[in-house]
Amino acid sequence: MSVTILGPVATGGHTLPLYSFHVPAGFPSPAADHIEKHISLDELFDIRAPHVYLVKIGGDSMQGAGIYSGDLVIVDRSLDASHGDIVIAAINSEPVCKRLHRSENAVILMSENPKYPPRYVMEGDELVIWGVVKYSVRDHDNA
């Protein structure tokens, strides 16, 4: 799996309409056309620059977590990564997106696809956690 750092998210932005109904997967209701309020994607995704940045994901090793090749992930570098978090990290200078597993005896970077084995962080390896993945955004035209 590869990652491409796209950079920090700028502050500010435009608000978008939020409709107060759930969108059915079938036929829309003609009565469901009023706006409840306007929201900001900055607020919705809890984006607070400069410690939040975007990363484009390449590869299929995180499909089990709902992160697919081509997705954008919103990463918060102000959070301390905990056991079970999905992280953007560098292992020996190679950037990866993996689930972090920590125990008393080991640190493991886990894929969410059974095709890929766990990556144990060994003595002598350099592991740098760049941030915790908070959200993913998918382009359905390229799915």
Rank of each mutant, 00 (worst) to 15 (best):
D76T: 01
H38D: 13
A143W: 11
S61N: 10
V52M: 12
D139L: 05
P117W: 00
D85M: 02
I5W: 06
V55T: 11
L127I: 09
E126N: 13
I35V: 15
G66N: 10
H140E: 13
T11M: 04
P24N: 10
I86F: 01
K115I: 01
K37N: 06
I74E: 04
V121L: 10
S61D: 07
E112L: 02
F21E: 15
S61W: 03
G7S: 07
V9D: 12
K98M: 01
P28F: 05
F45L: 15
A90E: 15
G59S: 07
D139F: 02
P28H: 13
V3A: 02
P24Y: 05
A65D: 09
R138P: 04
E104T: 10
R99F: 00
L41Y: 05
K37Y: 03
T11K: 14
D33Q: 14
S78Q: 10
L100W: 10
A65L: 01
D60S: 14
G58K: 12
S61E: 09
I35Y: 11
S93Q: 13
P8T: 15
N92W: 09
A65T: 03
V55H: 06
G13L: 09
H14A: 13
S103K: 05
D60I: 03
L127W: 10
F45Q: 10
P30A: 03
M1T: 10
G26C: 09
T15R: 15
A90V: 02
I67G: 01
V55G: 07
I5V: 14
V73C: 02
H140M: 14
Y135V: 04
P95I: 06
V132F: 01
G13F: 07
Y68T: 03
M110P: 00
V73T: 08
G26D: 15
Y116W: 07
T4N: 14
V52E: 05
I39S: 04
G64P: 12
G13W: 10
A10P: 14
A10Y: 11
P114W: 01
D125C: 08
E104P: 07
M62D: 04
S69T: 14
V137A: 04
Y116C: 03
P8H: 08
G70N: 04
W130P: 04
N92L: 06
V75Q: 08
S2A: 06
H22M: 11
W130E: 14
D42A: 09
T11L: 05
